[in-house]
Simulated assay, not measured.
Amino acid sequence: MIEWKTLKEVAEELGISKDLIKYHRKHLEPLDLVKENGQYYISPARVETIRSHVRKESCDATFDAALTNDRATARSDVQSLDLVSINYITSHN
Rank of each mutant, 00 (worst) to 15 (best):
M1I: 04
M1T: 05
E3K: 05
W4F: 04
K5T: 04
T6F: 00
T6M: 02
L7A: 07
E9C: 09
V10T: 05
A11S: 05
E12A: 07
E12Y: 00
E12I: 04
E13S: 08
L14M: 05
G15R: 12
G15Y: 12
G15W: 11
G15E: 07
G15L: 08
I16W: 03
S17K: 03
K18C: 11
I21L: 08
I21T: 03
I21V: 12
H24F: 11
H24G: 07
R25A: 09
K26Q: 11
H27R: 12
P30I: 01
L31N: 04
L31M: 01
D32V: 06
D32Q: 09
L33M: 05
L33W: 01
L33E: 02
V34F: 06
K35S: 02
E36N: 06
N37A: 08
G38A: 07
G38E: 02
Q39R: 03
Y40Q: 03
Y40D: 10
Y41M: 04
Y41A: 01
S43Q: 09
S43M: 10
P44A: 13
A45D: 14
R46I: 01
E48V: 00
T49I: 09
I50N: 02
R51V: 09
R51L: 09
R51Y: 11
R51I: 10
S52A: 11
H53L: 14
H53S: 14
H53Y: 14
R55A: 01
K56F: 02
S58H: 12
S58P: 03
D60M: 14
A61N: 11
A61F: 14
F63E: 06
D64N: 15
A65D: 01
A66F: 10
L67Y: 04
L67N: 11
L67R: 09
N69I: 07
N69H: 05
D70Y: 03
D70N: 05
R71L: 11
A72I: 00
T73F: 12
A74G: 02
R75C: 14
S76C: 13
S76P: 00
S76R: 14
D77V: 09
V78E: 14
V78H: 14
Q79R: 13
Q79G: 12
Q79E: 15
Q79L: 13
S80I: 06
L81D: 02
D82E: 12
D82C: 07
D82L: 06
L83A: 12
V84I: 15
V84M: 13
S85L: 13
I86T: 14
N87M: 12
N87H: 15
N87E: 15
Y88Q: 08
I89E: 14
I89V: 13
T90S: 11
T90F: 10
S91D: 10
H92S: 09
N93V: 09
N93A: 05
N93W: 09
